[in-house]
């Protein structure tokens, strides 16, 4: 595919269009785009907007799979438009739709607010009881690399909503928290600095929490960052069950490591060399 760089191939984009002011429901409109090797779906949409139809609306920002704005349904798969090369997924036709399981604001723009509200509800931040230290910090919270690895994978989430679009439970259950907020809950529950897991468990263990996940695995399959929300949710379920059975290991938020000079140095660390300048 790479040797064809100068030649373009016509690919028909079947794009979902919806204007809330004039359309009763979404419809499909087709555009033919000359596609060169290396062009992403986002490039194709830009081509349509600049050359064929300036009214087309979608959301994007960084163009490099970091911001999570351009989550779309490409050939039936929720994924990032900027991260997907057209010729990798299409020979002649490509369907481009908005992420499912959200309301459509216009064309390819889903309303992600429902996801963000659910995300906010699980306290996606480190919660501690020592207010004084949080407001006037005197040192760092100690965390080993091993403790970090327990949740590091789940921190790579960019909140693009692809997992929410792929989840079968969210297809019918409006109140289900969904893969992204639940993975975020697991991420903070497992953070050794955090002390807010009890409150989070109230929500993640509720009727529309982690137990509405039945491991269809779609969220992990579509995640463009390899976050694996399904894994996070299963670990969360185990924690909820152990907690209910009073078998969970007692967790205490990690201790604070005080400022420089107050920690104990290891004996075998050589002294710093003398300054040369």
């Amino acid at each position: 595919m790479t040797e064809n760089t100068n030649n373009s191939r016509p690919i028909t984009f079947h794009v979902t269009r919806y204007n809330p002011e004039s359309d009763r429901k979404p419809y499909i409109k087709s555009y033919t785009v000359p596609v060169r090797a290396g062009m992403t779906v986002l490039d194709g949409l830009h081509y349509i907007k600049e050359n064929l139809d300036p009214t087309l609306a979608w959301r994007f920002s960084c163009r490099m799979g970091v911001c999570g704005s351009c989550g779309m349904l490409l050939n039936g798969h929720p994924t990032l438009a900027c991260n997907t090369q057209i010729l990798h997924i299409a020979d002649t036709d490509l369907t481009v739709g908005p992420l499912p399981n959200f309301e459509i604001i216009r064309d390819l723009v889903p309303d992600l607010m429902t996801m963000f509200e659910k995300h906010r509800s699980i306290n996606p931040h480190i919660v501690r009881t020592d207010e004084k230290e949080l407001n006037t910090p005197e040192g760092e919270f100690y965390q080993t690399p091993e403790q970090l690895e327990k949740f590091l994978q789940f921190t790579y989430c960019i909140k693009c909503g692809c997992c929410m679009g792929a989840c079968p439970t969210l297809a019918t259950d409006v109140h289900y928290l969904g893969p992204m907020p639940l993975a975020a809950a697991e991420r903070y529950d497992n953070d050794s600095r955090d002390d807010g897991w009890r409150d989070r468990h109230q929500l993640t263990g509720s009727a529309h929490g982690a137990f509405r996940c039945h491991y269809a695995g779609e969220c992990s399959r579509v995640c463009p960052k390899g976050v694996d929300p399904a894994r996070a949710i299963q670990h969360l379920k185990r924690q909820l069950v152990l907690d209910y059975l009073h078998l969970a290991r007692k967790k205490k938020p990690c201790a604070m490591l005080h400022g420089p000079g107050e920690g104990k140095l290891l004996a075998n660390i050589p002294a710093a060399p003398a300054k040369t300048v």
Binding site: Q202, F211, V241
Partner: peptide, 12 residues
């Protein structure tokens, strides 16, 4: 947390 109880016994 009621759901956790129900689900745990569902699995058991």
């Amino acid at each position: 947390m009621r759901e956790t109880k129900y689900w745990t016994w569902h699995m058991t």
